[in-house]
């Protein structure tokens, strides 16, 4: 069964949240989901763009009070 892990990158500036996501995806299994919590507004567009470029699956983004939750599924 696929796992989901959460990375709390709130407070980190660009490209910190993206780099933390990529490091987590390296260690994840195929089908696992990684949720990134980020207060960096650029992550909202940067992470889906990166996911589209490299071939993982973008699951979605939820806005919270002062930060965003971006979820990615490892697809390769």
């Amino acid at each position: 069964m696929a796992d989901r892990q959460t990375i709390d990158a709130r407070g980190a500036f660009c490209p910190g949240p993206l780099m933390e996501l990529i490091a987590a995806l390296k260690l994840a299994q195929l089908g696992d989901e990684v949720e990134v919590l980020s207060s960096d507004k650029g992550s909202v567009t940067d992470i889906p763009a990166w996911v589209n470029k490299v071939g993982h699956t973008y699951v979605g983004t939820v806005e919270h009070d002062g930060y965003w939750s971006v979820v990615i599924k490892k697809a390769k």
Binding site: G11, A12, F13, P15, G16, M19, I22, A23, K26
Partner: peptide
């Protein structure tokens, strides 16, 4: 003063990943 990634560490991460 902000939590900005260190430039040398970013280069190292780029090489690693």
């Amino acid at each position: 003063t902000a939590k900005v990634p260190d430039a040398v560490e970013l280069f190292e991460q780029g090489k690693l990943l």
